[in-house]
């Protein structure tokens, strides 16, 4: 079944006369348990797309179907469905964790939401300890503040928050690009394992094709707001049809050679 059906979605910012086209007529379908990597350079519209999927933004044109229903973030019922099953990990954990909240409160925030319903565990404290364990942090981390942790650990906290309400879909916005190179692989493997063990659908935005190769079974290539190519990872990366995908591949090969 299709989790997300993105139907001719465009997004413009700014006034009518001077506007930027962040997304241009994007059509894509994400099925359950697929792991999508959305790649593109800075300004290609990948974060905008992710924000629309997370219900943080709305398309200017076109529509997004979530679980077969049209996603309207002003409608409480559909938004409730979305919040109950979709969680997100942000790029920079220094910005995505409130510096004045304790880790326990940060992680339990989605559990205290009036919008999140259904699968939420009754005992919030037990759930926090459970997800902390799942991301490989000691249970007594709860009482500490985010700035007392390293970058990699902070991203684990962000991941724990996202997993706390038992989501079925995980959105990730460049989840490792703000981290030290040495811990990237750890966090990426952790995401990999958790997506596996919890049976999640993953949509991850990145500019790093190596990350896509490692984690994703499907890939979409965004170029200046247009989805130029999409399909199974092996197919797209080994046999690219589009000129831009080839350029992207060539540039990363240079970087990794």
């Amino acid at each position: 079944m299709s989790v997300y059906t993105i139907d001719h979605v465009s997004r413009r910012f700014g006034s009518r006369r001077r506007s930027t086209q962040a997304l241009n007529d994007v059509t894509l379908s994400v099925k359950e348990h697929e792991r999508w990597g959305i790649v593109g350079e800075s300004g290609s519209g990948k974060t905008t797309l992710l924000k629309i999927l997370a219900g943080l933004d709305s398309p200017s044109e076109g529509k997004v179907l979530f679980m077969g229903k049209c996603l309207d973030i002003r409608d409480r019922a559909t938004l409730g469905d979305l919040r109950s099953s979709v969680q997100m990990v942000f790029q920079d954990p220094r910005s995505s964790l409130d510096p004045r909240m304790r880790v326990g409160d940060i992680i339990s925030e989605p559990l205290r939401s009036p919008l999140v319903k259904g699968k939420v565990p009754a005992d919030a404290d037990a759930r926090v300890a459970e997800v902390l364990d799942a991301v490989g942090l000691p249970a007594d981390s709860q009482r500490l503040f985010a700035h007392e942790f390293s970058g990699g650990q902070r991203q684990r906290i962000a991941l724990a928050r996202a997993l706390a309400p038992n989501p079925s879909i995980l959105l990730a916005d460049e989840p490792v690009s703000a981290l030290d190179v040495s811990v990237r692989a750890h966090v990426l493997n952790l995401i990999d394992d958790l997506v596996d063990s919890m049976g999640l659908t993953l949509i991850m935005v990145t500019h790093d094709l190596a990350v896509v190769r490692h984690t994703c079974d499907h890939v979409g290539v965004l170029y200046q707001g247009t989805l130029v190519e999409a399909g199974p990872t092996a197919e797209v990366l080994n046999n690219p049809r589009e000129e831009y995908t080839r350029t992207l591949l060539a540039s990363t090969r240079l970087g990794h050679a």
Binding site: K51, Q87, S95, V116, R161
Partner: peptide, 13 residues
């Protein structure tokens, strides 16, 4: 700040 967006994704009013 992203933690406001994160709170929104968490369904916080």
């Amino acid at each position: 700040q992203d933690y406001v967006l994160a709170a929104e994704v968490s369904g916080t009013p």
